[in-house]
Nucleic acid binder design. Structure first.
Lengths: 128, 128
DNA sequence: CAGAATCCGGATAGATACTG
DNA sequence: CAGTATCTATCCGGATTCTG
């Protein structure tokens, strides 16, 4: 194996095939959580169930469309359960599924890191 | 406080002002990690330092432009350090900063959850 | 009340060509 | 080798309108 002046091997010990990391569970989950509203909705639903317009009012700034879309994605991925009450007018309740609830723990760990270190990130950004 | 037939209070105990969650450290960090390449690059750089084209070869499918942009963002946010060796041809090495290294731990926790539960998500998606 | 449908602008990301 | 510059296709998300 040839090396450069830096001592870094030029041959790769672990090449990453596209098919692998595109299906990477971690990347997939991170992208699921990384959008604009998902995490906030999960944390709200982690407190208690919410109804649609209740969420709409709770999350200042979210559009009806994005609230619907984000909830649909979470429902499709099995993190949120949607229950329709056939009343007039209709009422729909959203709650975390057991799977979604289990997600609260590792998210909290990352949230803890974020709270602790976000200042450093902001400081680094401030330097350029 | 009035309640509905579902027993859910209509008054919100915890309204979420836009200014708050838009600056939310957790949302900020999650969005930082949630893009297409960031997590993969962090995990690679968590193993050892890499040079630019070495990363380009390691991450099959990434464009030169996106590799540059993603690394720049990570550098700007203080998670990755960039060292230039004034050789001919030039050589640039990327490594995790201490801040970036500290991120490996909570990311691993979330990664563990992802590995454990990704099948359930995929299964849920499969049902619709 | 809880949405669906449509339209649209800005951001995102890939491909390509060029350079110190 | 390690980028930059440019162009372009696509996606994301907001606003608006309409409905069972």
């Amino acid at each position: 194996m040839s090396t450069t002046h830096t001592g870094v091997p030029t041959a790769l010990p672990h090449p990453v095939p596209a098919a692998e990391y595109q299906a990477c569970p971690v990347t997939d989950v991170l992208q699921l959580l990384g959008d604009k509203w998902t995490l906030l909705l999960i944390s709200l639903l982690g407190q208690r169930p919410y109804r649609f317009n209740e969420l709409h009012r709770a999350v200042d700034g979210i559009s009806q469309r994005m609230l619907t879309r984000t909830l649909r994605t979470l429902e499709t991925d099995g993190l949120v359960e949607r229950e329709v009450f056939p009343t007039v007018p209709p009422s729909v309740e959203y709650r975390l599924s057991p799977l979604g609830t289990s997600l609260l723990e590792p998210v909290s760990a990352l949230a803890g890191w974020a709270v602790t270190h976000h200042g450093e990130i902001v400081a680094a950004r401030g330097r350029r």
